[in-house]
Design a protein around this nucleic acid. Structure first.
Lengths: 222, 222, 222, 222
DNA sequence: CATGAATGAGATTTCATTCAT
DNA sequence: TATGAATGAAATCTCATTCAT
């Protein structure tokens, strides 16, 4: 009696879970290739080959290449927001821990900020309004929810909405800082040699500094 | 004795001023076209035609298309830094006035932030190390200088270096905020209709808020 | 005693009449879609969807897309030949009435001539020899039969074979005329505006003229 | 002193005659390939390779693949009309000689009728209105001119306009006949084996028969 | 019988850059 | 210096057909 049949042996994704798995395979292939050839998006052919599928198959799961990467990015935002939420709910010093959460996340997901930086200039240019709105809606609800968590944790003095606004600024700050320090290693070294390291701020440290300033008005619980 | 020959009839730029003029013609054409078809960069053919020149001629003045736009962007950063410097030197409330200076500049130069947002992901990917370093060096010295001005204006409690660091954060914040609110008008409207306006913060106002928080620790002169 | 089970709920065509019905459903879907998007053949996916079936099911009934349309075309030729036969058997002026029969048929079946025009260049390129021969055989026997009818009606001076040859010419003439006048409406209007209407002859009238000339030698019965 | 420099050594078509030559090279490559793989149009890549040029170069001379073939077809119609004109001007029996002219032309240019048969269903579907109108205008003026020649030759009883109309019918008949006899050799043989040769009329002979009937009313000069 | 996931060949077109003239 | 012809690498996306389920 056969019970265990490895799903990987199926050549067709028939039910929804198999389809989701195949979608994930494609997303992973896209992620891997993007990491290899940053900052340009890999071609659909390359993604398909890496996933062991045909080019046409990719278009069964995503309707444009950019949709693949928005999807990847959306997943990451969701993960990050969830992780920050968990932190916010039990943190003694939410700001400090949020920063650490972001820093850790970007470290574990090195394609997150490169992709996030392409969102407005590249990715959002070739996806349907519907997908874009879904992405934004997810971002919105996650931000609101996180704002509420933080507000509750730090006490009543900062309301949820103010927290949400601060989160938007946090996001902007993170994006901008990352782009500033983003450059080919040889350029970074050259800047460093010429004492212009100011222009290539170390991301983690700069983020801590920046966010503390931004959230500074928010009193930590005594 | 100079024989009068109308410069407009000359088809070749012989001396340096003529060359500079031709370069400017190209930069202006590039700027105009970019404004028309944001957020994608216009083609070299389009830039050349708009400038009344042939495609090959563009490559006598710039070695890649991206170099044109980095050049345009560099000019704008220079202008903005200079303008902020003037403000910083005589401002009563430097932070307030710096924000207004940025807001005014971005208003007068609507291609500034779109281009700045493409710097790390698009423009810097296809220019020579040399040009990139020149761009960074200009940015560096401008930042240092502005930091000094601000430091002097606000008094000795905040040193020049700290001001430079704050300027880097200011830059990051501006970039990130702009990217967050950047989206097709119909998406903006849809967000607004769904009470998700939080995700499309009004740039000027958000920048004021953000920068005040960032610079907040800096005491204004009594 | 037949148990009532609504045929529409059956998802499988078991007996031959059900299979024929399903085939007809597909043919109708193909016809409708072709009329909508002339002059290109609709996709198999579109035909299947319109018929309420899956794409793979189409291939249970036809082995290529072109076979669907050859089938449709064959049906129409059969109908037309039959209709002309009826006319020929009792007509006072067979040529005159044949023309009217064709004109009426093409009017009632607007997809007939567009498809017939694609026969040699598109449809016949992707069907099996067997199907092509069946199509030709049907055409042949129909032509022969009609030739005999006409021959009998008009009297012994024109033999059946000569009539069949004239029918082949009739067919050719009809096809060619239709293709000449076939063009996008805006082009037709432009031709008309420039007094080049000669190139877009009105089909019905031109067919009458042409066929009268072709059959002219055939004496009508006194 | 170098005088003769073979134009074929130039790698760039600078002046108009060189450009025309290059266009011809492409048209010839297209013609050759079409003859080899009739009835499908060769790919642009194949045409470019055959011409010893790059794919992009093709698009400097033609804006779509279909434009190449309409151009080829237009050239052929022009040649044929001119040739028929010469014949008509001095022929004793214009109809007879016109038929021979067509037969000879189609024999020497075996890609003529295959392409002409694709005109309305394939070629005209992907070219600009402008090119299509130019094609039609050429056809129109050639037809008018030929009609006048014929009218003059045969004497005043058939006016030029009637001749033009007959030419349109001649064209239609030729197209239709060719399509009827057009089929893969093995099918032709099978028809023949089954005594269905009627359906694959020998083009030259059938054309003679058809055109004589069409032009029959036109009295030859005594 | 029916399904629809998977395939993968193919086709068009753009455009930055080079380099012969 | 200036030109613009030529290049050719991409890149996206469609769709007829197959075949595992």
């Amino acid at each position: 009696m056969q019970i265990l049949r490895p799903t990987t042996e199926r050549t067709r994704a028939i039910d929804d879970s198999e389809k989701a798995a195949r979608r994930d395979t494609l997303l992973n292939a896209a992620k891997t290739l993007f990491l290899e050839q940053q900052p340009s998006l890999p071609s659909v052919q390359a993604i398909a080959s890496r996933a062991g599928l045909a080019k046409g198959t990719v278009y069964l799961y995503f309707s444009t290449k950019e949709e693949i990467f928005i999807s990847l990015l959306g997943q990451m935002y969701e993960d990050l927001l969830k992780q920050m939420n968990e932190v916010a709910e039990k943190a003694a010093d939410p700001v400090e821990e949020m920063v650490e959460s972001i820093v850790a996340y970007t470290h574990e997901n090195p394609h997150f900020l490169p992709l996030a930086s392409m969102a407005s200039t590249v990715l959002e240019q070739n996806i349907s309004d519907q997908h874009l709105m879904a992405f934004k809606a997810m971002l919105f609800s996650g931000t609101i929810r996180l704002g509420q968590s933080i507000s509750q944790t730090v006490g009543g003095q900062t309301d949820a909405e103010a927290c949400a606004v601060l989160l938007v600024h946090t996001h902007a700050h993170m994006l901008g800082l990352w782009q500033m320090q983003q450059m080919p290693p040889r350029i970074r070294e050259a800047l460093s040699r010429n004492n212009m390291g100011l222009l290539a701020p170390e991301f983690n440290q700069a983020l801590r500094t920046g966010l503390k300033a931004l959230w500074g008005g928010t009193p930590s619980p005594p």
